[in-house]
Design a protein around this nucleic acid. Structure first.
Lengths: 339, 339
DNA sequence: CTGAAAGCGCTAACAC
DNA sequence: GTGTTAGCGCTTTCAG
């Protein structure tokens, strides 16, 4: 086992060893065609011998491309985003890109600074599930000013004309609410999410469907939460209402899982007395206290589609037209709504 | 809203505008002390005006430091690793480091290539939950050859003299098994993990504790699985044994969650007829069909400790002594073992 | 097919 | 305090 030097081998070293120019070696490394087969062989041999690895920092500076794509998500712990991240990495890696994943913790300021860091690191492109407030435009403007292509996922921004990949959130809201109605629920509450498009869209789908069915929601039937812990607390409030709901639609699966816990703790049965449905189809939905009915939004597809759109933008010199993908949600009935 | 140029502002531009040298501007940017207060003010003003952002690629090349740390985990979807990743990012960000997260998919070859990519990108340090086979040494050797500091997490490698942060896996095995025994189990099966130190250590803790208690495990009582799906399948086999176990210790929480599903489907009750315990204390353990007893290994702490050790190594010029942290596990009894 | 020239944008080390 | 001189390791462009 050779003990390689602490200072890595450079193109220059190989060129010197072989009495060829740095350029020639560089061309071989990058697989350019215009190199004599004999020269190429010698260079390749030496490269293997010395275990040469190109310095990507230098390469990036000279080539003005880093082959790095930034991804910002609000919460890696939520398996929905972990799944998306995985889909993106897997799609982009074969194309030679590395993905730098950042966690914004659902904090717009932190996110903005992450965006700036990534831009300073000269990423070639950006994918964001943004935690910016709906009207915000500043952070995106800085990306556009730099001419860096980016695609929004999960959360849309009306004021921004950018590519988007995500679920049809109103459809999710309609699907979930309609399902509860069909299962016989009449007093349907909604644990709504934050004021992002998924939160707002699902809420609207819920309200529209209720209205269309001639049902109405008493005050207090719409309450906010973001994860299992807050979903649990929210549900306790719901159950304390004078008119206890017989159906609960949770903005996402973690919230719905928290709801299940609270309902059972209150001594009510699921699905007999209260039916619960979530959204997202996280992989452990089936393992919960009561297997959770949910609306699938195909997270992995969101990742692959986003990667695909970005890849196209990265490979075309001209500014590409904005292109979007709306993923059609799919009902996954399980025990929590009586199946 | 100014429309900034596509080609970003450079030090040179600012220097030119102000009739000072590039160096002076550079010094101001980096906050060096040796700059006249008047000059500094002018430079700062222009920087704000032009929204100058240093080019980190160029800076990295010149300074021979990227302020990037690589993190490789086998599976981001497993919330244990997501939690660690979060702990690491949060600890390292304030020190000016960005963390590049890679997923090895539990594949040693893929991991080796990720390591090489990260090294080629000139990361300043590396943190790995490695998927290399226990005897492997090659990939680590390449890191050391480059003189890049690294710390191993979760999985240890006997042949490698490197810093390590992880749980005391034998203790986890002992704690879980002992708990089952104390809950009255006599026929205790183990769904073991892969042949990594956590898998092997927990298995040993299980075997030692069984032996110490004078219990023995019939053939077929140790079976392998890695996630909820395979844990579910493994448990079905366990339940088909002539002597059905009355206690199951799952290598990790997902496996144990799969076990719960299989046991209930078989018409057996938990914890009355079969008790189940996992390890890891993933955040949804409490929301499972039966709230899962588990052994907590404080994932976030693993991340912060690893970050701390690496940070020390990064800030000291001399090669640091290897330092390790063994996290003491803690029993978290819930309903799945009768509490 | 090969290579010389000219940087990429920034920083270390040392003069002034 | 400020500026100069030299790169970092690689690629682009264009001449031979």
């Amino acid at each position: 086992m050779p003990n390689w030097p602490q200072t890595p081998v450079r193109l220059k070293d190989i060129a010197h060893d072989l009495n060829v120019s740095v350029m020639t070696v560089s061309k071989v490394v990058r697989g350019c065609a215009d190199v004599g087969p004999e020269t190429r062989k010698r260079v390749l041999a030496r490269i293997k011998e010395l275990n040469y690895q190109p310095n990507w920092v230098a390469r990036s500076l000279a080539a003005r491309r880093t082959f790095i794509v930034g991804l910002i998500v609000p919460d890696l712990m939520h398996s929905f985003f972990a799944e998306i991240a995985k889909g993106i990495s897997n799609s982009l890696r074969p194309l030679g890109y590395d993905v730098v994943i950042c966690n914004s913790e659902e904090d717009a300021t932190l996110e903005a600074s992450e965006i700036d860091r990534l831009l300073a690191r000269q990423v070639d492109g950006l994918i964001l599930a943004s935690a910016q407030p709906p009207s915000a435009t500043d952070a995106f403007a800085r990306i556009e000013a730099r001419g860096v292509p980016f695609v929004l996922i999960d959360r849309r921004f009306a004021s921004i004309n950018a590519s988007f990949v995500g679920a049809d959130d109103e459809a999710i809201g309609r699907l979930a609410t309609q399902h509860l109605i069909e299962c016989g629920c009449r007093r349907i509450a909604h644990i709504a999410g934050p004021k992002t498009t998924p939160g707002v869209g699902r809420l609207k789908g819920y309200q529209d469907t209720l209205a269309a069915a001639g049902l109405d929601a008493p005050t207090g039937y719409v309450i906010h939460a973001t994860d299992d812990a807050s979903g649990y607390e929210a549900t306790k409030k719901l159950l304390a209402l004078s008119s206890v709901p017989d159906g609960i639609f949770g903005y996402n699966d973690p919230v719905a899982a928290g709801a299940i816990k609270a309902v059972l703790e209150a001594g009510l049965s699921i699905p007999q007395q209260v039916k619960v449905i979530g959204a997202g189809n996280v992989h452990y939905s089936d393992l919960l206290r009561v297997p959770l009915s949910t609306v699938d939004q195909r997270s992995t597809d969101i990742g692959t589609h986003a990667a695909e759109i970005l890849a196209k933008a990265l490979s075309s010199k001209r500014r590409r037209a904005v292109s979007s993908v709306l993923i059609e949600p799919r009902l996954v009935p399980r025990e929590s709504t009586g199946r």
